[in-house]
Design a protein around this nucleic acid. Structure first.
Lengths: 159, 159
DNA sequence: TCAATACTTGTAATTATTCCAATTACAATC
DNA sequence: GATTGTAATTGGAATAATTACAAGTATTGA
């Protein structure tokens, strides 16, 4: 009960951001955040729950939802919604876009050109834009290779 | 059965697109499509259902979902997902972006500059991009006016 | 007209998420 | 170190959105 974890970058950042909003540092929040940082494949809340349970078997789904919300609130994680499925969570806060593969459903981060700023969009008068997001769709390298390499498998195995 | 409706643009387009995919023209599909064209405010499935019931009281929720799926399938309507809420449907197939008001939740179409093409994004090798979408967030004219204390002056037409 | 098939309908089931009330943990103070 | 007020966690119930299914109805083509 006394092993002091080294205050690494994760803790520091988390602590800092939580403090800003008057929220507490808890082991659950820390753990959920570490799960998101460990594998940045935009997991859904349920996937986070499953991964979190590996090292923290008693954590509850409600807590995962709470922690994710907290992390989003304090600006360490962002929520991404794509298609009809569950909301997904992304711990990459650098400016980037999201690419979704139509074939395998995978999500990929596409770095934004630093300083590329916002695309040239002519906003009608009166609108105040705070945020923009570019979502790309198509085929990821793996799926693209399959489609062109092997002849177009029109009657591929049922999904 | 008896009264032949004039084949207007709606019917023509719908028929054409349905035929392409081997789907049938039905009164429910026509009606759901007309609801989407009548008010282009990106209604959710449930809102479509409510509006559709006005003139077709017997239509069911299941049919609305089916029809919406069909319309999306045959390229007359697109699905837009924003935040956690319900999926919304948009009948504007011209190239445009979506603006969501953080305050009132309203959705607005922002026309893309014709020929502006896609934003300059450096895709990592191997990715095949088929589609991109820009989502904007901020304040709509009405909510922006309220926030700055400016009375409802410039912004006029409500959605 | 009749059969084949597509479509619609109502309902049940599923999925994703939120809500809530009861504990439990934490931080500050005595 | 005990006390206390507050915040966080927990499990389960509740809700919202969507999908699945089985039965009935409409439409098309022969």
């Amino acid at each position: 009960m006394s092993k002091k974890l080294p205050i690494d970058f994760l803790d520091e950042r988390l602590n800092q951001q939580l403090a800003k909003t008057g929220l507490r540092f808890t082991v659950q929040r820390r753990h959920v955040y570490s799960v998101l940082l460990a594998k940045r494949d935009h997991p859904s809340a349920e996937e986070v729950f499953i991964r979190a349970k590996e090292k923290m078997p008693d954590i509850s789904m409600a807590t995962v939802y709470n922690c994710l919300d907290t992390l989003v609130q304090c600006g360490l994680v962002r929520q991404v919604n794509h298609e009809r499925g569950a909301t997904r969570y992304c711990s990459n806060m650098a400016e980037h876009h999201h690419f979704y593969c139509d074939e395998c459903g995978g999500a990929f981060d596409i770095d934004a050109e630093p300083g590329s700023g916002q695309p040239e969009i002519h906003m009608p008068p009166g609108f105040v834009m705070n945020h923009f997001e570019i979502t790309l769709r198509g085929l990821c390298p793996e799926c693209a290779a399959k489609q062109t390499g092997v002849r177009r498998s029109v009657s591929s195995s049922a999904p």
